[in-house]
């Protein structure tokens, strides 16, 4: 891989995907994926927080001493989350009503912290920003996929309420694929989250195997 950015982007979006490879951020990955739209919104909010905090940590990396780095990272992530929370409440209120309850939970998501520790703290500003952004987008892809599968099986719809999240012009995305009576309620409830996430991890490993790659052990690239 000659270009380091290609590597970072591929790692973040697919090969080292936060959810499907590293199994980090499991709490939002299961709690927020009752529909594709919810997963997508949560993913984007997380990506914004990750990109911003990676940028800040890389900027200050020479001033943060080893002994206090963890509290400083948490401080930075928490500040970014509060910032997103306040800004969304003030200027994207419809979206806030859907996601508001879950935004503060990004602080307790271990994926941003893991990337700060494993990457941003040792990297220059631009690669760190790209890594945070791509890891966040990979997280978005994972959450949207899990949400889509759960939503189709559980309620028979896909991207329901997407117009609330993205604006009225996205009404066309809201599909009903199966009649509501065919919905399997369990997929919307917590067991569905575990089942779908597990199956997705299996799918990713099978795809990687077929591509002839060694299976990477979960957590090999990050901290728990």
């Amino acid at each position: 891989m000659s270009n380091p950015y290609t590597r970072i982007v591929r790692d973040g979006l697919w090969e080292n995907n936060g959810v499907f490879s590293m199994l980090l951020g499991m709490c939002p990955a299961m709690a927020m994926t009752t529909s594709a739209t919810n997963g997508f919104g949560m993913g984007l909010a997380t990506a914004a927080v990750m990109a911003a905090s990676s940028l800040l940590v890389a900027t200050f990396r020479n001033h943060i001493s080893q002994e206090v780095r963890i509290p400083v990272f948490i401080l930075i992530v928490a500040t970014m989350v509060t910032l997103v929370d306040l800004a969304m409440n003030a200027w994207m209120h419809e979206l806030y009503k859907v996601l508001g309850l879950f935004i503060p939970l990004i602080v307790s998501n271990c994926l941003p912290l893991a990337r700060l520790e494993a990457f941003a703290a040792k990297a220059p500003v631009v690669p760190a920003f790209v890594d945070g952004l791509c890891m966040g987008l990979g997280f978005t892809i994972a959450l949207t996929t899990i949400g889509a599968v759960r939503e189709i099986i559980g309620s028979g719809t896909l991207f329901a309420d997407a117009s609330l999240l993205l604006g009225p012009s996205f009404k066309f995305m809201e599909l009903r694929l199966l009649p509501a009576s065919m919905g399997v309620l369990m997929m919307i409830l917590p067991p569905g989250g575990f089942l779908v996430t597990g199956l997705m991890v299996v799918c990713k490993r099978l795809l990687d195997l077929r591509a002839g790659k060694e299976i990477q052990m979960a957590g090999a690239h990050g901290i728990a």
Partner: peptide, 27 residues
């Protein structure tokens, strides 16, 4: 270390105070 941590807390605390001030009316 204490001073470093304190400086970061102060700096980001200020940022938050400003943002909170800016968004109060809209919220």
């Amino acid at each position: 270390h204490g001073l470093i941590l304190g400086a970061f807390c102060l700096g980001f605390g200020l940022v938050l105070a400003v943002i909170a001030q800016v968004t109060t009316d809209d919220i």
